Amino acid sequence: MVSQKVVIKNPTGLHLRPAGILCKEAMQFKSLITFQFRENTANAKSVLSVLGACVKSGDEIELFCEGEDEQEALSTLVQAVESGLGE
């Protein structure tokens, strides 16, 4: 398992469009991909789970990837979040 903390840069946080982009990126990988925000853990492959985490701009999440392509998955998702998830 690999993990990394990343700060959400989108001005509106993880609302529907960036949540959808995050899920689309995560679904490319076989690994189990989750993130932790405060005490909650969300499945990065589920739009409803991502939206339910209520992540706002400037919040820090920790991404966790576990599986055969975990390292590639983590670097791809960190890069997507840092680039603003399409915003």
Rank of each mutant, 00 (worst) to 15 (best):
M1P: 04
M1Y: 05
M1N: 07
M1L: 10
M1F: 02
V2K: 15
S3Y: 12
S3E: 14
S3V: 04
Q4I: 04
Q4R: 15
Q4K: 14
K5V: 10
K5H: 00
V6C: 07
V7W: 02
I8K: 04
K9S: 10
P11I: 11
T12W: 09
T12Q: 13
G13A: 02
H15Q: 09
R17Y: 10
P18D: 00
A19W: 03
G20C: 02
G20W: 00
G20M: 05
I21R: 02
I21H: 01
I21C: 01
I21T: 06
L22T: 08
C23F: 10
C23R: 15
K24F: 01
E25D: 07
E25S: 10
A26I: 09
A26H: 02
M27I: 10
Q28D: 09
K30W: 11
K30T: 09
K30Q: 13
K30F: 14
S31P: 12
L32A: 14
I33L: 07
I33C: 03
I33E: 03
T34G: 07
F35L: 11
F35Y: 07
Q36C: 05
Q36F: 08
E39Y: 07
N40Q: 15
T41G: 00
T41L: 08
T41Y: 02
T41W: 04
A42T: 06
A42W: 06
N43S: 06
A44F: 11
A44L: 10
A44Q: 03
A44P: 12
S46P: 04
S46R: 10
S46K: 13
V47H: 01
L48K: 09
L48W: 07
S49L: 00
S49W: 02
S49F: 00
V50T: 05
V50I: 13
L51D: 05
L51P: 05
G52S: 11
A53P: 04
A53T: 00
C54F: 01
C54W: 03
C54G: 14
V55T: 02
K56C: 12
S57P: 04
S57C: 13
G58M: 01
G58N: 06
D59Q: 05
D59E: 08
E60R: 01
E60Q: 04
L63M: 14
L63H: 02
L63I: 15
F64S: 12
E66V: 04
E66P: 05
E66D: 15
E68G: 12
D69I: 06
D69Y: 03
E70P: 07
Q71K: 15
Q71R: 12
L74S: 01
L74P: 00
L74H: 04
L77S: 02
V78L: 07
Q79G: 12
A80Y: 11
A80C: 05
A80V: 08
V81Y: 02
V81F: 11
V81P: 08
E82R: 15
S83G: 11
S83K: 14
S83Y: 11
G84T: 08
G84M: 10
G84S: 10
G84H: 03
G84W: 04
G84K: 06
L85H: 06
L85Q: 03
G86H: 05
G86K: 11
E87R: 13
E87D: 14
